[in-house]
C-alpha cells in the first residue's frame, strides 16, 4: 500500500474502473517519492492514461526496467504528476514473460530458462495518442530496450544511430565481464 497518502479522485476513478490496482510492495512517498504506487496491466494502460489526461495530469516520465534476470520480465514505468502540488502516480506495467538472457560466464545466476518463452521484442500499447509526450519516451525505450509500441505513429530510433543493431540499455549488452573475456577494453 502507498502508505497513508490520501486517495485522490483520479485514483478512485481508476480503481473503480479496475484499470489499476495498488502495488502491495509500495513503500510510500517518504521512501520512494511516489504518492501512489500502482500496477497496471499492459492492455489497460491507454485507458488509464486517458483518465489521467482528463484529470489534468501530465506525463512526467516513461522508462523501462530490464528485469529478465530476476523476474523474467521487462517492466515499463510510467509516472504521472499534477502541475500543482505534487501528486505523483507511478504505474508498473509488466510485459509478457520472456527468456532470461544468457548469463555471462563470470556471473552466477539462479535463473533457469523458462520452458517455452517468447523471444524479444516485446510489445505494449502506445499512449502517444493520449499524451504526445509519450512519443519520444516510447521511441527512446524502443531504442534502448527494443520494446515495441503498437499504434505508435513513428516508432524509430531516437538516440542511437538508425542503423544500430543493438539495444544499448539491455542488461546483457556491453557487460564488463564479456568485454574482458573478448577483445579487451571495458566495453562501456
Amino acid at each position: 500500500m502507498s502508505g497513508d497518502a490520501k486517495i485522490s479522485a483520479v485514483l478512485e476513478t481508476l480503481l473503480a474502473a479496475k484499470l489499476v490496482q495498488q502495488d502491495e510492495q509500495g513503500v510510500g512517498y517518504a521512501k520512494s517519492g511516489m504518492h501512489h504506487e500502482l500496477l497496471c496491466p499492459a492492455e489497460a494502460i491507454r485507458a488509464a492514461a486517458t483518465v489521467y489526461r482528463e484529470a489534468g495530469f501530465f506525463l512526467e516520465m516513461v522508462t523501462c526496467l530490464d528485469l529478465r534476470e530476476t523476474a523474467r520480465r521487462m517492466r515499463l514505468v510510467y509516472t504521472f504528476n499534477r502541475l500543482g502540488p505534487a501528486e505523483r502516480h507511478r504505474l508498473f506495467v509488466d510485459l509478457a514473460e520472456v527468456k532470461p538472457f544468457e548469463p555471462s560466464p563470470n556471473v552466477k545466476s539462479n535463473a533457469t530458462p523458462a520452458t517455452d518463452p517468447p523471444a524479444l521484442p516485446q510489445c505494449a500499447p502506445s499512449i502517444s495518442s493520449v499524451y504526445p509526450a509519450a512519443d519520444w519516451f516510447e521511441r527512446e525505450i524502443f531504442d534502448m530496450f527494443g520494446v515495441q509500441f503498437s499504434e505508435h505513429p513513428n516508432l524509430k530510433r531516437l538516440l542511437l544511430p538508425e542503423d544500430a543493431d543493438f539495444h544499448a540499455l539491455l542488461r546483457d549488452f556491453g557487460r564488463v565481464e564479456d568485454a574482458d573475456q573478448g577483445e579487451g577494453g571495458r566495453g562501456v
Binding site: K31, S32, L65
Partner: peptide, 30 residues
C-alpha cells in the same frame, strides 16, 4: 527499491529515477 527525486533546474523539472537491487551498483538510473 526505487526512488524518484525531482528538482527545478534552470530549464524545468529534472527528475532522477533510481532503482536499487540492493547492491553497491545502481540497477538503473533514469
Amino acid at each position: 527499491g526505487e526512488l524518484y527525486f525531482a528538482v527545478e533546474s534552470a530549464r524545468g523539472q529534472f527528475g532522477i529515477y533510481i532503482v536499487s537491487d540492493g547492491s553497491e551498483i545502481p540497477f538503473r538510473i533514469k
